[in-house]
């Protein structure tokens, strides 16, 4: 019974998502970016770290000695590296940060939220007060502090972004679990003598999936922007590894000579987060039962 019902909910949601043109546009753009990142070595006309000092800060369309197609599609940076190739490789960093951070925070958040919501009492009290404190903590300040402390690098960034990122998800899951644990089907499961673990995993969590999916799709652009901001401050991913944030940082010193250098990484960054936001909006509309006719 329950399985058939949940299946039709997702089918229904899928139908509504398909009708939502902006969300589909977002999804297509995300697929393109994922492909670009996965096959960056194949698409990139040059090695992203290949230096050609005589050709530094050239505008787009300039002839290039290092690009296989003979031109800098989007110009060259302060070391004569190909900006287009660096953007492609930068997509890897951004997507990795977005996805890995969301996986970690969702796992922690679901675990803590489910325990707090299901058992209540002291566990709930302690966990939610910790979540409150992390909420009151200015997040960027926290990330900056962590990155100063741990040092730059992608792994440290996963750590910094995950330590407080779970709090919002835990609250979300907790509120869902509290609402669901009073429902008849959970009562029925209890009456059958199922273990708490089984009830939570098999009966409660599947019914929380909607809000969790939405929070992940909205969380990914948040993590991507946080990475970009930290790399922009010189604390996240350090050059020569290309990241959209550190490219904007370098570019801001050459605004007078090569203004487009600062424009491209920002546009790609904006389009990517925009696409995730469109999809997130669409998913929320599709999965929110209140809007169902």
């Amino acid at each position: 019974m329950t399985e058939r019902k949940s299946l039709s909910l997702y089918k229904d949601a899928y139908k509504r998502l398909k009708r939502n043109k902006p969300a589909i546009f977002g999804l297509i753009f995300i697929i393109i970016i994922v492909f670009a990142a996965l096959f960056a070595p194949f698409f990139a006309p040059a090695d992203p770290n290949k230096i050609d000092l005589p050709n530094r800060l050239k505008p787009s369309g300039s002839p290039s000695r290092i690009c296989s197609n003979g031109v800098y599609i989007l110009g060259s940076d302060e070391y004569g590296r190909d900006i287009f190739s660096r953007l492609l490789y930068g997509a890897r960093v951004s997507l990795m940060i977005g996805v890995v951070t969301q996986i970690i925070t969702t796992l922690i958040g679901v675990l803590i939220g489910a325990l707090a919501g299901y058992y209540g009492g002291a566990i709930d009290m302690v966990m939610m007060r910790v979540a409150d404190m992390l909420f009151a903590f200015p997040d960027l300040l926290f990330y900056i502090g962590m990155m100063f402390a741990l040092g730059p690098g992608i792994v440290n960034m996963f750590i910094a972004l995950s330590i407080i990122g779970w709090a919002g998800k835990a609250r979300l899951v907790r509120s869902q679990v509290i609402a669901l644990k009073e429902t008849e089907f959970v009562e029925a499961a209890k009456a059958q003598g199922l273990s708490d673990f089984r009830i939570i995993v098999k009966h409660i969590l599947p019914n929380c999936m909607g809000p969790i999916i939405v929070s992940v799709s909205i969380g990914i652009p948040g993590s991507i922007l946080a990475e970009a901001g930290l790399s922009f401050l010189g604390l996240g991913i350090l050059p020569p590894t290309p990241s959209w944030g550190n490219m904007i940082r370098s570019a801001s010193s050459y605004l007078r000579i090569q203004p487009w250098y600062a424009v491209w990484p920002g546009i790609v960054l904006m389009l990517t987060t925009f696409a995730f936001n469109l999809l997130g909006d669409g998913l929320r509309d599709a999965l929110d039962p209140r809007l169902k006719q």
Binding site: A228, I248, S252, P259, A262, L269, M270, T273
Partner: peptide
């Protein structure tokens, strides 16, 4: 509006300077 939310504030700042 959605594009505005998606744009990183530091980049908008750099472009505004430009």
């Amino acid at each position: 509006a959605l594009a505005g939310i998606s744009a990183p504030v530091f980049w908008v700042a750099v472009i505004a300077q430009l």
